[in-house]
């Protein structure tokens, strides 16, 4: 499954870049994130609780952020599995400065399997976009809180 999108931030590139690399902000912003702890291999062990259509459940897995070009381009990889199935995501994120702040362009490829593919497949694309939207909105909100 291929998904992509764009999101506008009212903060400069540098602020958004560090926010998207900040485990505290990520933990609060990732939808359904129950825990997120740094492991020895430079990635995070995460536990997510999410529902897609009728398929709700817990996923455990890893999230890693790999910088391609500092301050402007990074790769986020995530994989998790649980009773409802598995998800494997690779998200290519690019940050460009704009007049009002910056713009993040993301391009994501995802593999899903098990029950979520069979039962949730029809709505999966929509749900993924919704979750991505929630995530970015939360990042801004977290930033606002940090600043406040």
């Amino acid at each position: 499954m291929q998904l992509n999108g764009q999101v506008q931030f009212r903060h400069p590139t540098a602020v958004i870049w560090s926010a998207l690399h900040d485990p505290e902000i990520l933990r609060a912003a990732i939808p359904g994130c129950e825990s997120m702890t740094l492991n020895g291999e430079g990635s995070y062990d995460v536990v997510l609780r999410l529902g897609v259509a009728a398929i709700k459940g817990e996923y455990t897995g890893h999230v890693a952020v790999e910088d391609v070009v500092p301050q402007s381009h990074y790769l986020l990889t995530a994989e998790g599995s649980g009773t409802p199935g598995f998800v494997k995501v690779q998200m290519d994120c690019k940050l460009d400065p704009t007049e009002a702040g910056c713009r993040l362009t993301w391009d994501c490829s995802a593999d899903v399997g098990g029950m979520i593919a069979g039962v949730g497949g029809r709505v999966l694309g929509g749900v993924a976009k919704l979750l991505a939207g929630q995530f970015f909105k939360q990042v801004e909100k977290q930033l606002a809180q940090v600043r406040a």
Binding site: D111, V112, G113, G114, M115, A117, G118, V119, G121, R122
Partner: peptide, 14 residues
């Protein structure tokens, strides 16, 4: 099934 052999038509909606 998708290319990964995953069933995409697992409900009566699909």
């Amino acid at each position: 099934h998708d290319e990964q052999g995953q069933l995409l038509t697992g409900t009566y909606m699909d």
